[in-house]
Design a binder for these strands. Structure first.
Lengths: 107, 107
DNA sequence: TTCATATGTAATAATTATATTACACATGAA
DNA sequence: TTCATGTGTAATATAATTATTACATATGAA
């Protein structure tokens, strides 16, 4: 629903999307929510690794998670896909990246 | 000018765009070509590092380089920006990433 | 109680990505 | 010849990302 995007936000989104597992996660979550353990099984990866990927996607605002209580009373963490739309073309990137501050990697 | 894009190509483009210097390069090359040494000066980075970034952009098809002879007869390598347009939204990524093969990192 | 399932994280290892330094070689101009 | 400029890469160091292992804790069902 946001209309504007800063250069930093653009970079964060692009970094979040630059991994095959994270693209797969988006494909799986498209249209239906899923909980973490089942998602890990569908991807064939461990839960700690999945958490790392989900954090990057959530940090970029592309997905979001919430706890739900199952019928049997167990806590389940479900993730769902947020809708987003960024025009990835040369002009848009050029205009957005003008204000990009490049920070040092480390302290 | 391409109308279709495979999941592998999408990932390659997203990886190419997931770095601040490479976004900056696109901003600089937008509308005007530039040669490598001058580009390195504008970015404030070394030529070897710039070559590395340019190779990723060129590998994704976002820029292309060619040699030119300057008036004085020196070989200059110019890079220019290709036009491209990818609809970066949840539905497009989900549909494209379905056919994504995740390869092992190593042999 | 024991088993199968779930969430959540800390510590560490393995692999890539990023960045620097030091070269070689070529041209034109002073 | 020497200096300033250009292209191009090999070797290496540094930092970030990705991935694994090992935990702790909780619930429901058999």
């Amino acid at each position: 629903m946001k209309e504007t995007i800063t250069s930093d936000e653009l970079l964060t989104v692009l970094e979040a999307l630059s991994n095959p597992y994270r693209l797969k996660i988006i494909a799986i979550l498209y249209g239906k929510k899923q909980y973490v353990s089942e998602l890990a099984r569908e991807l064939g990866i461990s839960r700690p690794l999945l958490y790392m990927h989900l954090r990057k996607l959530e940090g970029a605002g592309l997905v979001q998670g919430h706890l739900e209580l199952s019928e049997s009373g167990k806590a389940m963490k479900y993730y769902e896909l947020n809708s987003f739309s960024i025009p990835l073309n040369d002009q848009f990137i050029a205009q957005t990246a003008i204000n990009l501050m490049i920070k040092r990697r480390k302290e």
